[in-house]
Amino acid sequence: MSDKYIIFGATGSIGSSLAKKLKDSGRDIHLVARNEESVQQLASQLDSAYTVADVLENNFIEKVKSDIPEAKGLAYCVGSIDLKPFRMVKEQDLNNCMKLNLYSAVEAIKGYQESLKKNKGSIVLFSTVAAQRGFTNHAIIASAKAAVEGLTVSIAAEFAPNIRVNCIAPSLTNSKIAEPMLKNKVLAEGIAKAHPLKRLGEGQDSAALAKFLLTDESSWMTGQIIAVDGGRSKLS
């Protein structure tokens, strides 16, 4: 049995936090990211294997599988923040967002479906609070992430009882992709105050749950969409 845990988007805020938590708990990890310098640095820090691959490229999964043929767990921590007024949304915007967040996640899962089944594995996907809570200018990303939630429950049903599939829906998290929004301190403080817990998310907030869902600690959980959002989806 392979006990490797693959993290796509491993150099992001959540992906890197998850990698550290898995490594600290004695798990064997494999990092996947598109920026060679960043993933090399993280891999060196964690003494782990890695693959440089861009999920937007065709056949990216073959490149990853040539380095790591089997897996026990797969976390697709890739994401984007695509914000536009609806009147400015173009078909290409939707296509690009769906490719990054949904289609490539599907390819990653299909690539490891058989080994995950053999290893009684687990898959963790990522959505957003905006998929179920309406926010202005979020039509592109909310549509794509709502599709990820639909994928989660569909394949959780199809893959049971051999592979568990769950999804985490964070609110805004301190990260590289959120930097354009958060560099405005007034805006960042306003967003933080919109959460009942009065702060923005950190990578480790979602990573702690992702580690739980990836491992056998959560062996009786599948098909769940779980919010890690400072209470924003339910209380504000």
Rank of each mutant, 00 (worst) to 15 (best):
N101D: 11
A43E: 03
V39T: 10
F60Q: 00
V32P: 01
S80Y: 11
D82N: 15
K72Q: 14
R87G: 03
K90D: 09
C97L: 08
I29T: 10
R27H: 13
I68H: 06
E91K: 14
R27G: 00
I61H: 00
S48N: 03
L102R: 05
K84N: 09
D82V: 14
I68V: 15
V78K: 07
Y76H: 07
Q92E: 15
D93E: 09
K90R: 14
Y76I: 07
D47T: 11
D24I: 02
V64W: 01
N35D: 15
S38Q: 14
A105H: 04
V64R: 00
V32L: 03
N96H: 13
L74P: 07
A108I: 04
N35M: 11
K90I: 08
S80M: 14
L42F: 05
A108D: 02
I81F: 12
I29N: 04
L100K: 11
V78G: 09
K99M: 11
A53N: 00
E37A: 15
D47M: 06
L74W: 02
S66K: 13
G79H: 10
A53F: 00
E36T: 13
N59S: 08
E70A: 13
Y76T: 01
V39L: 10
D82C: 12
V89P: 13
K63W: 01
E107I: 00
E107W: 00
D67G: 12
V39D: 09
Q40D: 07
E70S: 14
D47S: 12
E37T: 15
D67T: 11
A49M: 06
K90L: 14
E37F: 08
D54G: 00
A33L: 06
V64M: 01
E62A: 02
V32I: 08
V78N: 09
N59T: 02
N96K: 15
N95Q: 14
V64F: 02
V106N: 03
E57T: 09
Y103L: 11
S38M: 12
Q92V: 12
I29P: 12
P85D: 07
Y50C: 01
K65S: 07
D28I: 07
Q92Y: 03
S44R: 06
